[in-house]
Nucleic acid binder design. Structure first.
Length: 428
DNA sequence: TCTGGGGTCCTAGGACCC
DNA sequence: TCTGGGGTCCTAGGACCC
């Protein structure tokens, strides 16, 4: 007898806002938003903020007046806090399932290993336990495929009148619901395909399931075909296995102010290269290809962007190697007279440490600096991100004006001793 | 003045080889 | 010298996700 399992999707409600509210309970029921890096765009909104018409991804400056008028509380992104709370939510989910795929900071898929008659109970218990342990509200959807689990979660959300749990077992459960899902809301149908589908008269997820396979394959590639199969209940996307080694790693940031001088851009590139090396070491990985990306703002009259890289003879996670390579690439692609607004460093061809000989043809060994890097990492853990390399500094008088602004940052309540909240007990 | 950061996969086309 | 099929590998670009 084959046991049919289903997939649960656990999705935190307005995650970043929920994290901020956890430590500022007086903000519950008030409009709250969280901004992206550089306080650029709105990336998370409370229901009250959504009701004011603040849309996802809107530039903050466009809604600042509206926010001021309605007393909307705006936070800069506090990723240390969100990452830590995410970790706690995921650990609760793992108590409910042996097979969990962390899909993003605020979402996870989990295998549901109970009989379908208990799906509803499972979803409700999971929702309540996450709330009880972490204080983060989540919605749980259960269905035979990932794409349908996304739809189920959609209907579980409080803003759609859901209770935080929604379950699809039979096609009769989901087929009528698909008529009420816009085709653009389907997981895997983005802003490019949506107008094409609508032009063909396909406006809902239900319409998509009735479409001819050959037409889908031709116009949406195999990716689209898989999505359509999943909506019909045929599983095409397996639950993610072990966290494989990542394929690429990017560290980048928009500048607080645009910069034209090479030393400033070089400082930013050096910083991102160092951060990339640190992440590689933390993950026990090395990379062979180092790329640099620099560009102007995307909205001004002046537009320039460049992306290029070098491949090293040996994979490395050494800060000085990666910074040095990135600096050489920057020399090639830097164009004088351009006002740059963003820089980043990306590495590819990532392998686990120890998978290659530590010696080149010429007998150079990369081992010699390993101890130095270990010492740097140790210093960083003890004293924070204060150890820089020389090229990150622009000059004595120059402030680091490429660094992003985050004027509305909340304290790092859970990851920094100095930011831990003090709670008074007894007399007030 | 002010528009994020970090990923994945697929496909077409070119280089190169037999 | 020219022609051509067929395979592999790499890369850039497109589309999607959060």
């Amino acid at each position: 007898m084959s046991k049919r399992t289903s997939i649960a999707l656990i999705d935190a409600n307005n995650f970043f806002v929920s994290c901020e509210r956890l430590f500022r309970p007086e903000l519950v029921k008030r409009p709250v938003i969280v901004l992206s890096s550089n306080d650029g765009c709105v990336v998370s909104r409370s229901e009250e903020a959504k009701a004011l018409g603040i849309t996802m991804g809107v530039p903050y400056f466009k809604v600042r007046d509206l926010c001021d008028r309605h007393g909307v509380v705006a936070f800069s992104s506090n990723f240390d806090l969100y990452r830590d709370l995410s970790r706690r939510v995921m650990s609760v989910i793992r108590r409910f399932s042996d097979s969990v795929e962390v899909y993003s900071v605020d979402e996870a898929f989990a295998e549901v290993d109970v009989s379908p008659v208990y799906y509803e109970d499972f979803a409700v218990a999971l929702r309540d336990e996450v709330m009880h342990v972490t204080g983060i509200p989540v919605a749980v959807g259960i269905a035979p495929t990932k794409t349908l689990a996304k739809v189920a979660t959609h209907f579980a959300k409080p803003k759609r009148g859901g209770s935080g749990a929604h379950v699809f077992v039979q096609p009769a459960d989901w087929l009528p619901m698909l008529e009420h899902v816009s085709v653009g809301d389907v997981w895997g149908v983005g802003y490019r395909l949506t107008p094409k589908l609508e032009a063909k008269g396909i406006t809902t997820a239900g319409g998509l399931t009735r479409q001819d396979d050959r037409w889908i394959r031709k116009h949406m590639s195999v990716c689209g075909l898989r999505t359509v199969y999943e909506l019909r209940g045929v599983r095409c996307f397996a639950l993610g296995e072990e966290p494989e080694l990542r394929k690429s790693l990017l560290h980048s940031q928009s500048f607080g102010r645009a910069a034209a001088d090479k030393s400033t851009v070089h400082a930013a590139v050096s910083y991102h290269a160092r951060k990339v090396a640190e992440v590689l070491r933390a993950e026990g990985a090395q990379a062979r290809s180092v790329y640099v990306t620099i560009r102007t703002g995307r909205h001004g009259r002046e537009r320039y962007s460049a992306f290029d890289g070098d491949t090293l003879p040996l994979a490395t996670n050494d800060t000085l190697d990666i910074v040095g390579t990135a600096s050489q690439v920057l020399e090639r692609i830097f164009k004088p007279g351009v006002r740059y607004a963003k820089a980043g460093v990306l590495v590819r061809d990532i392998v686990p440490v120890g998978l290659q000989p530590q010696r080149t043809l010429f007998g150079e060994t990369t081992r010699s600096r390993t101890t130095l890097m270990e010492a740097l990492d140790e210093l960083r853990h003890r004293f924070g991100d204060r150890i820089h390399i020389g090229s990150e500094k622009v000059g004595m008088s120059e402030t680091e004006h490429w660094r992003a602004k985050h004027d509305r940052l909340s304290p790092r309540y859970t990851t920094r001793w100095s930011d831990i909240r003090t709670v008074g007990a007894g007399s007030a």
